[in-house]
Design a protein around this nucleic acid. Structure first.
Lengths: 148, 148
DNA sequence: ATTAAGCCTATCGGAATTATAGACTAATTG
DNA sequence: CAATTAGTCTATAATTCCGATAGGCTTAAT
């Protein structure tokens, strides 16, 4: 399971992507509309800002906004920022690599190979899922629902 | 990341699968050879027994053995037993389903769809990875290594 | 009866997660 | 330039989960 942080971050980012280019949005607005505890959301948005994805403006008329284009931000980036590796075993990640303590020989570990397959597929899918595709899909889903 | 329990369980199961049909194996043997804390391993093997995957014999000459055939036990089963859902969001699993608290409308959640794709691929891969294929792959990897 | 081995219950320490409080800083506006 | 608005920083509380251990109980073989 991913952390609440990652989930909240994704919801906040999609919220911002919906209004991309329309100026800063208040933390309090995002918090209310997305049902996220405001103080918690503050730390999350700060992290996103420090990683270069978001920008902020202080004072009246301030708030947060997307600094990158929606198509340049994908789910993999967000998960890695808040939850670390996407892989399910430390020995199958590249940037968060760690040896499994109990493992006798990584080179002949068949379990490792199985988890490597899953990691590679997951990363591939998550990289294709950008804020742009998410917002677009949302629209499609909305239309479908209205027809019912 | 998966829990140590799942990882230890998989290592223990592969160990038992290597000697499938050759009678019970001591907890202490598995613990030593697979570098697993024995007391911890006891609880794990019990869970595997209660789920029907393993059988046990008490007393002298006792130990644990595979009750199911190696090709009938896959990684998905093991992960679900110890870590619950394979999905990364509670709203994309079937047997462990829970609504995301903050979610306004599941039907139009584009994030949900993205995570559903990942879940489906992961489950597909994990179901294909059985104790049989793991043991076989191990042999292949060993041969490859010896050639070097 | 003795001994070997798995079974059961309880519990502990530590880490991570989720969340909150409160003071501080920067920018806007009248 | 004072007042207000809104993001930033530091600290810490509350919970939950995980990995691990202890110790006694039960069962089966010899």
């Amino acid at each position: 399971m991913i952390s609440k942080k990652s989930k909240y971050a994704l919801n906040a980012l999609v919220h911002l992507a919906r209004q991309y280019g329309e100026g800063p949005i208040l933390i309090s607005t995002i918090a209310e509309e997305e049902n996220i505890p405001q103080k918690f959301l503050e730390t999350i948005l700060l992290d996103l800002k420090n990683s270069g994805i978001l920008g902020s403006k202080k004072g009246k008329g301030g708030g947060y906004y997307l600094r990158k284009k929606p198509e340049e931000v994908n789910i993999a980036q967000v998960l890695r920022l808040f939850d670390g590796a996407i892989a399910l075993l430390p020995c199958v990640t590249f940037r968060f690599y760690e040896r499994c303590e109990e493992c006798k020989d990584e080179d002949t570990c068949s379990i490792r190979e199985a988890f490597l397959k899953v990691r590679n597929e997951s990363v591939r899918i998550f990289k294709n899922e950008t804020l742009k595709t998410l917002v677009e899909r949302e629209k499609v889903l909305l239309k479908k629902k209205r027809k019912k």
